[in-house]
Design a protein around this nucleic acid. Sequence first.
DNA 1: CTATTTCATGAAATGGGTTTCATTAATCTG
DNA 2: CAGATTAATGAAACCCATTTCATGAAATAG
Lengths: 347, 347
Amino acid sequence: MVKNTTIYDIAREAEVSVSTVSRVLNDTAPVKASTRDKIMKVIEKHKFQPNALARSLIKKETGTIAMIVPDITNPFFPEVFYGANQEARDKGYTFFLCNTSGDDDRESEYLTILREKRVDGIIFIGGRINLANCPPELVQEVQEAAETIPVVLVNGNLAKTKFHRVYSDEAVGAALATQHLIDLGHRDIAFIGGLDFMTTTIQKVKAVKKTLEDQQLTLRKEWIQYGEFSIQAGRDLMNKLLDDSEHRPTAVLCVNDFTAIGAIKAASERGLHVPEDISIVGFDDSPLSTAVIPELTTVTQNTHELGKYAVERIFQINNGMPTKRTTVLTPKLIVRQSSGPAPVKRK
Amino acid sequence: MVKNTTIYDIAREAEVSVSTVSRVLNDTAPVKASTRDKIMKVIEKHKFQPNALARSLIKKETGTIAMIVPDITNPFFPEVFYGANQEARDKGYTFFLCNTSGDDDRESEYLTILREKRVDGIIFIGGRINLANCPPELVQEVQEAAETIPVVLVNGNLAKTKFHRVYSDEAVGAALATQHLIDLGHRDIAFIGGLDFMTTTIQKVKAVKKTLEDQQLTLRKEWIQYGEFSIQAGRDLMNKLLDDSEHRPTAVLCVNDFTAIGAIKAASERGLHVPEDISIVGFDDSPLSTAVIPELTTVTQNTHELGKYAVERIFQINNGMPTKRTTVLTPKLIVRQSSGPAPVKRK
DNA sequence: CTATTTCATGAAATGGGTTTCATTAATCTG
DNA sequence: CAGATTAATGAAACCCATTTCATGAAATAG
């Protein structure tokens, strides 16, 4: 591989000092027009590309931020990344994407690497750090990192810490979805999916319960089915629900779109029609939601904004601008085809 | 923000020279056990994290590679990224993910940034550079980059250039899918989706045609419908096909899973059952394919391997290991629910 | 016991930029 | 037109590691 041209090569050939070349490159001080032209010509001739490493070393900023995700294969994360990346470009950042694949050591491993690489900010989305029961060592580690690097937690909730956070208010979203079903005449509403120790699950269940109770309705204990977040889990949990032919809900709220799709599958495998026989509502408004038949009624989490605000926050911190520590986005209900009027009761 | 500790701080406190600290850090030369211990203690005390910028500057390697994708929101790309990222971790690389969002300048913009950041390799997947009709300026630019940085093209095909390439043989995949339909008794087969100037479309159409002709069947001109790669496009194109009630295919091959899903939607909106009335086959085996009802018969592109081999190639180039310029993966057919025996003809 | 390796370590150069400080030339002020 | 600014540029320090070269100490060879 060819040796890279340096600012010294340019200076020599243009018969000026490196300082002047640097000034032309960064426009940090006035340079005589004729000198500038001469330098520019040499730069273009060699297609000179200043070494960002050297620059970052002294400037103490790399123009690089990172996002640590648990599973890039889950379509929710690419959506957030998309929004983040748009904003990052505007602000002059390039993105490291670190996929932990649910591997436990991976988070702290990446954390070390990113710190060594002196990234200008780290966004955590999902993953253990965003869990209510996150191991204290990891919290400790991330907290240490946050002392030198801006850290933003997206859609998580580490209560007693004071990390920067951006999240969408899942409780509001769940309440919205619940109310939607009530308005459609449903009285027998169930909730499925999500691990019971994860914030995202806990908050939703709480909100569903509250919304129902506010209107003298109850969420039966047997109608809360916890589990994974996958299609398969959704199918299994829905089947459990349907196995009890005695008590069968007329509507099911799901922790995310994946489980909702699984639920639809389980229902249609039993010959039930959605939404005529049973209404199903998802959460996330992932690309999947318009892919299935029937299209999913779901709650949008403003995924792009989630990413956008996280990056914006990092930018503000790095530039000494005033910021709030918490940004809350309000989810919106998106009514499509999988929810409909409650079936008439035949006693 | 606190000042970072440097190797000099460590050296001073441990009462040795920086060279010795460096030796301990990198294990590049023998150090007396007692000295090593003393140094390690200081390192741990300060949680010293050596500055990767300074290291990279002199080592001329950054441990960083980049992937440039046109749309991370399309589930095909996260899958490839996933495989690439696994391999990258094994080889000690961290990943920049650059999303061009189909914005034309973005590719060359990112290219410049990545070169300045001195990444150890660049993977292009999709995007203009992989088009048969890629503008020559861009080819030129990427070629220049390839002189100093290993560049690998994934699933593309810039014929006359000699870039490193990794791709799955889409022609084989399309032939596989076609044969599958023929075996099921279908004779009236159509193809929908994909822009007609994109390699991925061209190759598939060609392969479908050839497979049919080899068995004395033909692909009617009206049954090739070009368009975008989206669900909506799939729906529209399928509707066009179905509008002609005179000639109606019994099976439809789609350029990707998105369009296949759109096609299923169009069919079921008209009361047609898949696969009883019409078979539909997708391409890519994206996560979507098991999400829809019926689950999609599709062709897997070995997405993870695609990414894996691309990273492996970069690693090999950087370490002066012998490599081939081209790696071809063979797609596999995955039969699920959306394809079935051809309906009995009622003349 | 002397000669030759090997071990253990430090000083200084290097990588490729940015920035401060100093100096001279050019322009402005009154 | 003298004095005060401002423009234009260069020299050198700095950022923080790695690595080469040199040197003295310890270990091995003969």
